[in-house]
Design a protein around this nucleic acid. Sequence first.
DNA 1: CCGTTTTCTTGACTTGTGTCAATGAGACTG
DNA 2: CAGTCTCATTGACACAAGTCAAGAAAACGG
Lengths: 237, 237
Amino acid sequence: MTTVRLGKIKNACQNCGVRQLCLPTSLDGNEFNLMDEVVTHRFKLQAGDHLYKTGDEFHGIYAVKSGALKTSGVTIDGREQVTGFHLYGEIVGLDAVDEKIHPCDAIALTDTEVCHLPFKKLREASAKLPNLLEDLTKIMSREIRREEHVLMLLGTTTAEQRIARFLVNLYERLQKRGELENTITLFMSRQDIGNYLGLAIETVSRQFKSLRDKGIINVDKKKVEILAMEELKTLAL
Amino acid sequence: MTTVRLGKIKNACQNCGVRQLCLPTSLDGNEFNLMDEVVTHRFKLQAGDHLYKTGDEFHGIYAVKSGALKTSGVTIDGREQVTGFHLYGEIVGLDAVDEKIHPCDAIALTDTEVCHLPFKKLREASAKLPNLLEDLTKIMSREIRREEHVLMLLGTTTAEQRIARFLVNLYERLQKRGELENTITLFMSRQDIGNYLGLAIETVSRQFKSLRDKGIINVDKKKVEILAMEELKTLAL
DNA sequence: CCGTTTTCTTGACTTGTGTCAATGAGACTG
DNA sequence: CAGTCTCATTGACACAAGTCAAGAAAACGG
């Protein structure tokens, strides 16, 4: 549970350009050389490690290269609230650009590799590279939409709907990354799922059981096999 | 209930620079002249008018100059879900930058004035003006944080907490705009509030009544007078 | 390897909040 | 002004999901 301090790990990042970040990049050719200046460090986190903590000074955003992270804030009354799960190919830290202080924790859920992108450099490079600027705004826009999506998910819905939507969403995100198996691995705990979906941990457990009883999924520990995707999607409606 | 089409209203926007947008602007002097090129139109909406609808092509973002808007999407199962209320001084439309299509509706809650900021121009100007670029990223970052805040609000909390937090948040936003009265005007319906907070309209009604019985607020139609702010904040915890 | 701790599951019970239904209060219209 | 609509309030009731509690199953650590 150690916070990774920047600068400690100084191994240069070779294969860490925009293209490999799974960003909606439109960069080509020489521009990549410039981009590589932006990416400074690539380093590893173990499950439970903090990438940053609430209140930490903001130095830049992070591209998740492998593994997964959760971001969670602390509500006014002191409870944890998970605000998102971030798979590889996604970006974390965009919520800190404004105030220059991280408003939430980012914690690795499993062994995870991230690339650090100093935001100042990114901005400077964006001024020279129109395409990069476009990418940057798109990435931020996408993050805004992602959160809106979660908001929609949390509106007045049943526990079953939330769990179903959660599974479908996770499946689709993994599918986009080329993972076509029907079995998805939950890297997060039941606690995290419940917290994220606004449900008690027991409810999460019961819903998994209920879906299993209906023959829609198969749950074994952190492995969830989707047996009837169409039915699952119907429940998600 | 008419959608305002761009281009129909072509009156140039005089007092619509960044400074007046209540943005965290750091622009000075001549740069403003460039900025004024970015702002194209300023126009009025009546209560119920759509600024844009889900699926509309994205032409730019909008700065709310007066009044208030709600943004709401349609969930997979066809229900409306309010994702935010936007007071004057705030920006709407940032969630469309990525896909170039508006993922939600933006509807005026009262008579509202907005400025249209073509995003392409904004981006082009940002490449020349480092400060503008900084502002743009900050604004987007702030929007991301705003939504995270709503997420935290919707996590496992009671109806009373949600209503209390909603009122405190609204009060503080109005206060930042220099409105120091203890009476706030809800420009949105109970329906919208309930939808936004994930509560049934009846529950909203009952919670208002309950807070009134406790002597914490005074409700008369859309006017909410806060009698005991400290107690309200305690309930919000 | 066994003891300890954490995480997950399952059951019994309670309660907050949604649903249904009826009524009241304004706002708008002809 | 009565008639129609929409919006808000209030009450009665049911049920989904939270809480409490106990036990099972992994994970961890020496």
